[in-house]
């Protein structure tokens, strides 16, 4: 008969957290920031088809970093939850806060109960229904279910501390879309390298886009913004 090892809960949680953090740190980072007309989401992503940033609902967007299959599962769960809620009640009753809570509960549950924590960090961004920039929301949710309601900008993924420091230096409230994009790109790339257009995935929640505020900015439009 083999003797079960005793592992202190503290050690066990720390091991899981280290495991998740390592997985996330391997991935490329992304930045979400508010600008004059909404929220801009900028991710370093070398794939054109496996998106890190996507639409959840009329005024809500999702971004994930880390393991693709895991955050994609969360993305689809979020779309389902939001669509069911909007269908059962009203479109106005779908909000980022309750969605962020749902994500936090799920990630927290997986972290404590499952053998392997999810190696993801996600961002739930929302522009307020009142069109008041003060109502824009950035909910940053960690692998263990920790939720942070961040202001102005949010940095996810590997090297987040350094990128966050650069964002803090460069961030300007109510900037134009082009300026916001340049700020985010500069923070993502750092002083020692430059990011090519095809390594970027950019999308926005824009107050002028009608009911569905989410829109991808790609190709010529993206190039024109950076010109």
């Amino acid at each position: 008969m083999s003797m079960p090892y005793y592992v202190p809960a503290e050690q066990w949680m720390k091991d899981k957290a280290d495991y998740a953090r390592k997985g996330i740190a391997r991935g490329r980072a992304m930045v979400g920031l508010t600008f004059a007309d909404g929220v801009l989401l900028v991710a370093e992503n070398h794939s054109r088809t496996l998106h890190k940033v996507s639409e959840i609902y009329d005024r809500i967007a999702f971004a994930g970093v880390g393991k693709y299959n895991e955050f994609d599962q969360l993305r689809i769960a979020g779309i389902r939850s939001a669509d069911i809620r909007g269908y059962s009640f009203s479109r106005e009753d779908v909000d980022a806060r309750s969605l962020a809570n749902g994500y936090a509960q799920m990630l927290g549950h997986v972290f404590t109960h499952d053998a392997k924590p999810m190696e993801v960090e996600i961002l739930v961004a929302e522009i307020g229904a009142s069109n008041d920039p003060d109502d824009d929301r950035l909910f940053h949710i960690l692998y263990d279910g920790t939720v942070m309601d961040e202001e102005n900008f949010s940095v996810l993924g590997g090297d987040a501390d350094a990128i966050g420091t650069r964002m803090k230096e460069k961030y300007v409230a109510s900037s134009t879309r082009a300026d916001a994009l340049k700020i985010a790109m500069g923070a993502l790339s750092g002083p020692d390298r430059t990011l090519a257009l095809k390594e970027l995935e950019v999308a926005e929640l824009h107050r002028g886009n009608g009911r569905r505020a989410f829109r991808r900015i790609e190709g010529d439009e993206l190039a024109a913004l950076l010109a």
Binding site: R80, D83, I84, R85, L99, G102, Y103, Q105
Partner: peptide, 24 residues
Amino acid sequence: MTLPIFSSGDDPGASFQELLRRSG
């Protein structure tokens, strides 16, 4: 709020109608 999560055998895919059915 709990997120609707399905096992891979019970997944409604991209259909909203099927999702409603699975969610009762």
